[in-house]
């Protein structure tokens, strides 16, 4: 316990989350993974957007940045590129990451910038009190889906993989030990790594959908997932319609900041004054 407490800003507690909220479990898993890796507190930077989940960095004793809704990865890109020696971690919600921040998410993945992104997916907009998100399953209720959500969801892990993320995993707040392992793997991976953490919002998702409180929601999460390794040998009917958990994709590729540093190594010189000319500046375009 003591080895993880030192990573918290204990004077900032208690946190704002509701009793039974899963965001604390995911935050705890991140801190445990950091503790296992014995990361230097002064070289870790945690960035978030807006949402209940995005409040997590405020409780962590690193340089922390609570940005605008959906923009965490864009802010983090600036930090990482300016200071590639820092371990940059993004904590984001399902709405923050896949709705308003979807564009930054796929482009960060495409660049393969060395950022670990933890998506706290509670299938709802918690902070604004329960509207449906791009991760609310079809037919489920939200305050803006009073007749059942007519939209489909993303498969976030497949999206990340297709966009170019080089490490992708899915864990849950129910499988807490596995979540620590997955985040640990993500943190040691050089490149864009994504851990989707399925988690519970008892206050809005659970109540609105009459699934129940935290315990019932954890059961619900357990029921809708299956371990990716086990799934490979299970009969198809046991896997159908379930979300795979575990490490789903790993494909090391050249990392963006490393590639940029190669350019610098090629062209760097002392500043001898500016010699550039401007090409094609009168071209028409929108």
């Amino acid at each position: 316990m003591s080895d993880i407490l030192k990573y918290f800003r204990q004077d900032r507690l208690p946190h704002i989350w509701c009793p039974g909220c899963g965001h604390g479990t995911v935050t705890g898993a991140l801190v445990r993974a950091i503790a296992r890796l014995k990361l230097d507190k002064n070289k870790v930077c945690v960035v978030s957007g807006i949402g209940c989940s995005s409040r997590a960095p405020g409780y962590l004793d690193f340089d922390t940045l609570h940005t605008a809704h959906g923009r965490a990865l864009a802010f983090a890109t600036g930090i990482k590129l300016a200071r590639p020696d820092l371990k940059v971690i993004v904590m984001t919600g399902d709405g923050d990451c896949t709705a308003i921040g979807g564009n930054h998410f796929i482009h960060a993945a495409r660049r393969n910038i060395d950022i670990t992104t933890i998506v706290m997916n509670n299938n709802i907009y918690g902070m604004t009190s329960g509207q449906y998100s791009p991760m609310t399953p079809k037919g489920f209720l939200g305050t803006t889906a009073p007749y059942g959500n007519p939209e489909r969801t993303f498969d976030l892990c497949k999206l990340a993989e297709a966009a170019g993320a080089t490490y992708v995993a899915r864990g849950t707040s129910f499988h807490a030990q596995m979540l620590i392992d997955l985040i640990e793997q993500a943190l040691t991976h050089r490149g864009f790594s994504v851990v989707e953490a399925l988690t519970q919002c008892p206050t809005y998702f659970g109540r609105k959908n009459k699934v129940g409180g935290a315990v019932e929601l954890l059961e619900w999460i357990k029921e809708r997932t299956v371990n990716a390794k086990a799934a490979a040998v299970l009969p198809p009917e046991k896997v159908a319609g379930k979300l795979l958990i575990g490490e789903l994709h790993k494909n090391p590729q050249p990392e963006f900041c490393d590639e940029y540093d190669k350019i610098i190594a090629q062209v760097q010189r002392k500043f001898e004054g500016f010699r550039g000319g401007v090409r094609g500046c009168e071209q028409n375009s929108d």
Binding site: D63, F75, G78, L86
Partner: peptide, 14 residues
């Protein structure tokens, strides 16, 4: 451009 201004704020913080 949303990402652009976000990235320069991040870089300036370093």
């Amino acid at each position: 451009e949303i990402g652009s201004i976000a990235a320069i704020i991040g870089a300036s913080l370093t």
